[in-house]
């Protein structure tokens, strides 16, 4: 279903969820859960947003049923550790490429996706200071390197 413009802020989290449906369904589930909670805060009044959010809720309930035997879903404390480990692994991969002077689309995407996953971590509660810094750094790095490559410059 098309994303209403009022919910644009969760577009990339939902795309990350789709990208992980096969690769890592736990990441998909919590990306959609974050999108659901954030979407309800953004706009749950207008008909098109309500319709979108009801469909998203249907999908979450189905995923929870299908993944009921997965501890990362049945116990949120385990889910929290899963998402945090996944975000850190992605961040460290991109950071390692950056420090090695290897700039490419994949490392930019890894920086950006890790920053989205640090957003997702907020469903479990307040972010740690380290995670807040990682998110800020990862999002800045993705933007900076992307702009350098667009302008034909070598990132410092």
């Amino acid at each position: 279903m098309a994303l209403p413009s009022q919910l644009k802020a969760i577009q990339h989290h939902l795309r990350t969820a789709q990208e992980h449906d096969k690769r890592d369904p736990v990441v998909s589930y919590y990306c959609r859960l974050y999108a659901m909670q954030t979407g309800m805060k953004l706009d749950s009044k207008t008909p098109e947003c309500r319709k979108f959010l009801v469909k998203l809720m249907d999908q979450l309930e189905m995923m929870k049923k299908e993944l009921s035997d997965n501890e990362s879903i049945s116990q949120e404390v385990v889910g929290n550790a899963h998402i945090e480990n996944y975000a850190l692994k992605m961040f460290l991969y991109a950071d390692n490429e950056d420090r090695g002077g290897r700039f490419h689309k994949n490392m930019i995407k890894s920086f950006y996706t890790s920053s989205l996953l640090y957003d997702v971590l907020s469903v479990f509660g307040e972010l740690s200071e380290e995670n807040i810094q990682h998110r800020k750094y990862a999002r800045w790095k993705a933007t900076y390197i992307h702009n350098c490559m667009k302008n034909g410059e070598t990132p410092k």
Binding site: M40, S44, K45, V54, M57, E61
Partner: peptide, 27 residues
């Protein structure tokens, strides 16, 4: 119809909130 519309909207909002709480075992 205006008030009917808004009451339908708030009913749906409430239902979404309850389903979210249930999803997260917070009932």
């Amino acid at each position: 119809t205006g008030s009917l519309g808004s009451s339908v909207a708030s009913a749906e909002q409430d239902e979404l909130s309850q389903r979210l709480a249930k999803l997260r075992d917070q009932v």
